[in-house]
């Protein structure tokens, strides 16, 4: 299958420090890839370069073959590159249902409309309802987000991204901050992601990585040092060195 998401020799330096060095990867629809790496490996910078929040010094990011150079973050979202946040970013005074409806309206290009309400748009409500069910959020659907459990907020963060119908989904530590008792629900939600969606998950929790990913990419000091099957990652000498050796410690401040 042809690549839906391609990164080609992406590089970025802050001052003299190369934070991302010629990173290349390609993903096909349906791929489940985990991006891991020690602290300071450049994961966040990589995400920001891809989403358009940072401008790369060189290199190309493509969605479905279309280069995204020069596009701002919003245009990239409109092309199908959607991210979730490590710390949930939701609207505290809105309900989950309103969140999803707003995302559906945005995808349809209707958030500029000055008239009509959600309650007169059955197709928007139905799509929101379907997403609420898929993620098991029906019970919390009409409560303000500020009042629902953090685990539910994390699920909503995923549902919100899905409502935009992305081609590529960047999940930034989707289970961060969730109590142990609720992680199975997050994992179930991840397992139920649409089959044709390419998912790149940035994650620290190796249990989650091994259960979710079919492929693992290890980033250290701004370069990819491993790209392969999850089963092989712990055997790789460079990965071990990056995580355990002095090599990692030197860069942990970056």
């Amino acid at each position: 299958m042809s690549a839906v998401f391609e990164v080609e020799r992406l590089s970025k330096a802050f001052g003299g420090l190369a934070v991302t060095q010629a990173v290349s990867l390609a993903m096909a629809p349906g791929d489940r890839v985990a991006l891991i790496g020690p602290n300071g490996a450049g994961k966040t910078t990589f995400v920001n370069l891809v989403t358009g929040h940072l401008k790369p010094d060189s290199g190309v990011v493509r969605i479905a073959g279309e280069p995204l150079n020069g596009m701002n973050p919003m245009q990239r979202v409109q092309r199908g590159l959607v991210r979730s946040f490590q710390v949930t970013r939701l609207f505290p005074e809105m309900t989950p249902r309103e969140h999803l409806a707003l995302a559906v309206l945005q995808r349809q290009g209707r958030t500029g409309r000055l008239y009509g309400t959600l309650w007169s748009m059955p197709e928007v409500l139905d799509e929101s309802e379907a997403l609420l069910r898929t993620l098991g959020l029906e019970a919390a659907a009409d409560r303000k987000v500020a009042e629902i459990a953090y685990g539910q907020q994390r699920l909503l963060e995923i549902a919100f991204a899905l409502a935009l119908r992305p081609k590529v989904l960047l999940l930034d530590e989707p289970a961060a901050g969730v109590p142990q008792s609720e992680t199975p629900r997050i994992e179930a939600a991840l397992a139920g992601l649409p089959a044709d969606l390419a998912v790149l998950m940035i994650e620290h929790d190796m249990d989650l990585v091994f259960r979710f990913a079919k492929r693992v990419i290890v980033l250290a000091a701004g370069t990819i040092i491993f790209d392969g099957a999850p089963g092989d990652v712990t055997k790789d000498a460079r990965v071990r060195e990056a995580y355990l050796g002095s090599y990692a410690d030197d860069r942990s401040v970056a």
């Binding site: 973050p73 939701l90 945005q106 959600l118």
Partner: peptide
């Protein structure tokens, strides 16, 4: 309206609004 909702979204978290495109 949808526009009114979007505006309330901006007040509550503009970064999230941008991240939805």
């Amino acid at each position: 309206s949808p526009f009114g909702m979007l505006c309330r979204g901006i007040r509550q978290d503009p970064i999230r609004v941008a991240a939805m495109g």
